[in-house]
Design a protein around this nucleic acid. Sequence first.
DNA 1: TGGGTAAGTTACTCCGAAGTCATATCAAGG
DNA 2: CCTTGATATGACTTCGGAGTAACTTACCCA
Lengths: 199, 199
Amino acid sequence: MRTGTKGVPRLDREAQIVAVACRRFGEQGYAGTSVADVALAAGISKPLIYQYFGSKDGLYVVALREAAAVLVAEIERTAALGAVGIERAVLTLDGMFRVLEPQPWLWRLVFDPSAPRTGEVAEVLAEHEERLVVLGTDGVRDLLELVGNDDPDDLSALRAVWENAFRTLVGWWLDHPGTTPEEMTARCERLLATLFGGS
Amino acid sequence: MRTGTKGVPRLDREAQIVAVACRRFGEQGYAGTSVADVALAAGISKPLIYQYFGSKDGLYVVALREAAAVLVAEIERTAALGAVGIERAVLTLDGMFRVLEPQPWLWRLVFDPSAPRTGEVAEVLAEHEERLVVLGTDGVRDLLELVGNDDPDDLSALRAVWENAFRTLVGWWLDHPGTTPEEMTARCERLLATLFGGS
DNA sequence: TGGGTAAGTTACTCCGAAGTCATATCAAGG
DNA sequence: CCTTGATATGACTTCGGAGTAACTTACCCA
């Protein structure tokens, strides 16, 4: 590739790099993606990424922030609708499927188990986890209060179970690309109804 | 360290190395553990590991096989007891807590997201996943049949949710070291009863 | 007693990926 | 026309971890 400028303004280039990085990090994971990889996919060279983002983690933080903002905002939007119980759960799942449909890789980017747990990345991760814990606890609390259970550890564990059920359903959907958001929402509704209504 | 033999027979040494490797891989993950690391913890040198196990993956496969055998055997044991529904679920969780109490690191070793998905490791992983899928599907099937739902995708998704709920409860327990297996089993029983009995 | 073999180590090579340095091109303004 | 700053790259250094070559010691047995 020839050396010298191509006339692309910094902000445009940054946006392009971040878009490519979101996809790569999301599809291959943090550990499975090298900076050279992102550079190649973006059609530029590695030093440009270092010039604009400082380090691999610097780039990752920006991509992560962008992806997490989209997903958390969607969850907070549906939470604010005021539904409760199964209805709230289904609404949240439905919103997530719709947001993810055009860019499914955002999901695994935000919940990447290979992301580093140090430095600024850890801070960003902790920040979003915090918000999800608040929302999840909120959605799950009345279930326990209904049966007179006010044990905080029970609440913590139940919240964890719900969060992971949510993640599992989204993960299942991502692993079955033929399924539309509508179909998947209907499936979730059926399953949740079975769990809570049955036996 | 002095060179030359220390008189430890190969089989003894192998067993010792595998025990150390289980713990290291389980506590730090496959990616976060180097062969030199295991060697140091075992009080021997790196080439001895290569002489006995061939490669890092070779060692990992042996450790993984050993750990997975313990855990899957326990799940199959409780499954064979013939309980159904919540009772079966609680029984399985209880058995797992008891097995893991003296060696909690086995859990994360078997479900290590940083393990490679290539070569023999992938085969071993797939083999155990297969057995877990069979057991999980079995435990979850009647729940759907009870409401006249015979959609195979619903079954697949519900099984995934149950597997991850199981993993989450075990993970929660591991993250709260003060809790005895008995206490945790009781908690699981409360939570499952709330889910299935309530609302 | 001396050679073969199992058990063991030191000191190396090799490789991939993070990160850096020096340089090149272009556009705009004096 | 010529300098300056922004955009860009090829070629480099560095580092950690996988894997290897060559050597050493102790024990057993003819």
